[in-house]
């Protein structure tokens, strides 16, 4: 191996740059936050009279490593067969297909050397960040998205979901997706703490990280996840 081995770059150690600032909301004490953690999500009144939602932190998030991903997309069907009883790329809660050919930026004149299978082979899969202040949940007009009691994942209650698509419009990462067949929102629910996509990945490119590490990998300055694009 010689030269390539010498050139091994160490994977940067996760550096936590916490954006978990919800405790700083004026008027919300620690006790309230703990209550939120237990209940998933509650609304509290701020000192200046606004109503804000306080979300329990997710237990963690799934991170995709573009350097290890071989693009088999078994994760997508692992997700949807388990959670929807069907194979589908479009509603998969992990998105590999959409950046597969030409990377996150899509086709350019320089496609042959840009990200993607048709370029430099770098596959940028995208996963739900289980955001501290989930735009999907904040936007839902019927309160159908809440933090799961066990995992803290921001999950959709399909019984309450009215299929309006507000979550899809709100998510800055393009993860929440309205299933065109059921008119219900789909987003990552962490499979009750044992994510099906992670279990299926044949190269270990997908891993579930506890929140502190996940946050660093997704949002830190040394973010390694392709999802940080």
């Amino acid at each position: 191996m010689g030269s390539t081995k010498d050139a091994v770059q160490e994977k940067p150690a996760p550096k936590t740059q916490s954006r978990r600032d919800f405790l700083k909301v004026t008027g919300v004490g620690l006790a309230t936050a703990f209550a939120a953690a237990a209940l998933g999500c509650i609304s509290v009144d701020t000192r200046d009279g606004r109503k804000v939602k306080v979300w329990r932190t997710a237990s963690g998030a799934i991170i995709h490593d573009p350097n290890l991903c071989v693009g088999c997309r078994r994760c997508e069907t692992a997700c949807t067969v388990r959670n929807d009883g069907k194979g589908s790329a479009y509603i998969s809660r992990i998105k590999v297909a959409r950046n597969f050919n030409y990377g996150p930026n899509g086709v350019t004149a320089a496609y042959a050397v840009a990200d993607g299978q048709h370029g430099n082979f770098r596959l940028v899969g995208e996963t739900c960040r289980q955001c501290s202040h989930p735009a999907c949940g904040e936007a839902c007009p019927v309160g159908a998205i809440s933090a799961d009691k066990k995992t803290g994942a921001r999950v959709v209650d399909t019984k309450r979901c009215v299929g309006c698509g507000a979550c899809e419009d709100a998510c800055p990462w393009g993860m929440a997706t309205l299933d065109p067949e059921t008119r219900k929102s789909t987003k990552c629910l962490l499979c009750d703490g044992d994510p099906s996509c992670v279990k299926t990945c044949p190269t270990g490119a997908l891993a579930f990280y506890p929140w502190e590490e996940a946050e660093a990998l997704l949002f830190g300055t040394d973010a390694v996840s392709g999802a940080s694009a």
């Binding site: 692992a78 067969v81 069907k86 194979g87 589908s88 790329a89 479009y90 065109p180 067949e181 099906s196």
Partner: peptide, 14 residues
């Protein structure tokens, strides 16, 4: 394609 292929017995497939 934004649709799907439906599976009769997802648990058995898994």
């Amino acid at each position: 394609g934004t649709g799907s292929v439906k599976v009769a017995d997802p648990k058995a497939v898994m």
